[in-house]
Computed example of a mutant assay.
Amino acid sequence: MNHTNAQDEAGRKAKPVAPKVKELIDRTKSVILATVDAEGIPNSSYAPFVQVNTTLYILVSFMAKHTKNLADGRKTSVMFIEDESATKQIYARERLTIEAAASQVERDSEIWNTVITKLKENHGKVVDVIAEMQDFILIALQPVKGSYVNGFGSAYFVDQNLDILEHRNDVNHQPK
């Protein structure tokens, strides 16, 4: 193996540090949501979010299909993805996909008040208005497991704490 191939191999096996996952989350203001309804019909959407510890919180309206799906406690997946305009390679955008357990937060509870304050800080005064509307509910999305990708052949399992566990696949992309 020549020096260049050895460097490439080392780069593929190098485990990214957990802060890379957290940096992607910190750079993002909204999450992409994937939910399913009672009939198993998929729905994709998005919602602004805040993070408290490892839990993600979204304030969503029942006027959106995803809200009923989430309120009914159905499985969900959330995705954080590098902005298209910032990526060097569209096929290898940095991304974090998480399976999450959804639960509704009781209105005016301590966690409701804490999260609403943080939502206002991050997303502005509009939160004051929508938090008072009765069709809006606060959903907690607790990560279960996921994957983090930061390039070709660079995919990793992520645990419920959003920490990198291990490389997802030791098999590299195969040429034709």
Results as ranks from 00 to 15, higher is better:
114 T>P: 03
15 K>I: 14
2 N>R: 00
102 A>W: 03
27 R>I: 05
134 Q>K: 14
77 S>N: 04
126 V>W: 07
168 R>M: 10
82 E>V: 05
56 L>M: 09
83 D>R: 13
138 L>S: 05
10 A>N: 13
172 N>V: 06
151 G>Q: 04
101 A>K: 14
97 T>R: 09
90 I>K: 07
135 D>K: 02
57 Y>F: 13
175 P>S: 15
106 E>Y: 09
99 E>Y: 10
141 L>Y: 08
69 N>M: 00
142 Q>D: 10
131 A>E: 00
66 H>D: 00
47 A>Q: 08
14 A>R: 14
9 E>K: 05
20 K>V: 04
13 K>Y: 09
10 A>G: 07
96 L>A: 03
27 R>Q: 14
137 I>Q: 11
76 T>S: 15
75 K>D: 12
141 L>S: 04
29 K>S: 10
64 A>S: 11
78 V>D: 02
75 K>Q: 06
98 I>C: 14
129 V>R: 04
146 G>L: 03
128 D>V: 02
115 V>N: 07
52 V>H: 10
96 L>T: 05
119 L>R: 03
165 L>Y: 06
11 G>L: 12
44 S>M: 15
91 Y>V: 11
18 A>M: 03
118 K>H: 13
62 F>A: 03
59 L>C: 07
159 D>M: 10
61 S>L: 00
168 R>D: 10
45 S>F: 08
107 R>H: 12
145 K>E: 13
11 G>P: 06
90 I>S: 12
146 G>Y: 04
61 S>D: 00
142 Q>C: 05
46 Y>D: 02
114 T>I: 08
19 P>H: 04
170 D>T: 03
77 S>Y: 02
96 L>H: 01
114 T>V: 03
79 M>P: 01
47 A>T: 01
24 L>D: 11
99 E>L: 12
130 I>Q: 10
37 D>W: 02
29 K>Q: 15
155 A>C: 08
3 H>Q: 15
22 K>H: 14
156 Y>P: 01
15 K>T: 15
19 P>C: 03
41 I>L: 07
95 R>G: 08
96 L>Y: 01
1 M>C: 12
40 G>W: 04
43 N>K: 09
73 G>D: 09
85 S>T: 10
63 M>T: 09
169 N>E: 00
88 K>C: 06
145 K>N: 11
139 I>E: 08
17 V>E: 15
131 A>K: 02
160 Q>M: 14
121 E>Q: 13
79 M>W: 00
94 E>M: 09
98 I>V: 14
94 E>F: 01
36 V>E: 09
132 E>W: 03
114 T>H: 01
115 V>F: 06
94 E>Y: 02
96 L>K: 00
